[in-house]
Computed example of a mutant assay.
Amino acid sequence: MKQLFYYLTLLTGLLLIFIGARFLLVPMTAETAFGIHTSTGGDYSFHYIKGIRDLFTGAAIVLLLLMREFRAAGFLLLAGSIIPMVDFSVVMSHTDYVAARLYPHAIAVVLSLILGFYYIRTTAKS
């Protein structure tokens, strides 16, 4: 079970790094995958903010795992669960949202909560 949670957490971090990089490199493609459509007029400020947020969060998760700071990773995941919760509501607030675009955000909420609680419960305070 320990190995399963480790690899799920690692995959979560790596996916966030990928999503963040995609928002920075191909913002419109990333926006569509996120589940919204905005008129940017060539201004990708939102996309860059979202991209760096995800890139940082993913890197922090991966680094904490590699440094074997599981308790810290647990708290980061637990606190960070607010991000996919808000992302879910942002997508759902668009009148033309597609239900399938909500699933990744919902899965991210569940994963963050489960993995966060797991690491906090199974690691002792230093």
Rank of each mutant, 00 (worst) to 15 (best):
Q3P: 03
Q3V: 10
Y6S: 01
Y6H: 12
Y6M: 05
L8T: 05
L10P: 03
G13Q: 10
G13E: 08
L14M: 14
L14H: 05
I17G: 04
I17F: 08
F18Q: 13
F18H: 08
G20E: 07
F23L: 02
L25A: 15
L25C: 07
P27H: 07
M28S: 09
M28T: 13
T29I: 12
E31K: 03
I36R: 04
H37P: 00
H37Y: 11
S39L: 12
T40R: 14
G41D: 08
D43E: 08
D43M: 02
Y44S: 03
H47D: 14
Y48S: 13
I49P: 00
I49Q: 12
K50G: 01
K50N: 12
G51M: 06
D54W: 01
L55F: 15
G58Q: 09
G58T: 06
A59P: 01
I61V: 15
L64C: 11
L66I: 06
R68V: 05
R68I: 01
E69D: 06
E69C: 04
F70Y: 15
F70W: 14
A72Y: 09
A73T: 15
A73V: 15
A73K: 02
L76M: 12
L76C: 08
I83E: 09
V86N: 00
V86C: 01
D87Q: 05
V90C: 04
V90A: 01
M92Y: 15
H94R: 11
T95E: 13
Y97G: 00
V98W: 10
A99D: 03
R101W: 02
L102G: 09
L102I: 09
L102R: 07
P104Q: 05
H105E: 09
I107Q: 08
I107Y: 14
L111K: 02
L111V: 14
L111R: 00
S112W: 03
L113G: 00
L115F: 12
G116S: 06
F117S: 07
Y118I: 07
Y118D: 08
T122K: 14
A124Y: 10
S126I: 06
S126M: 05
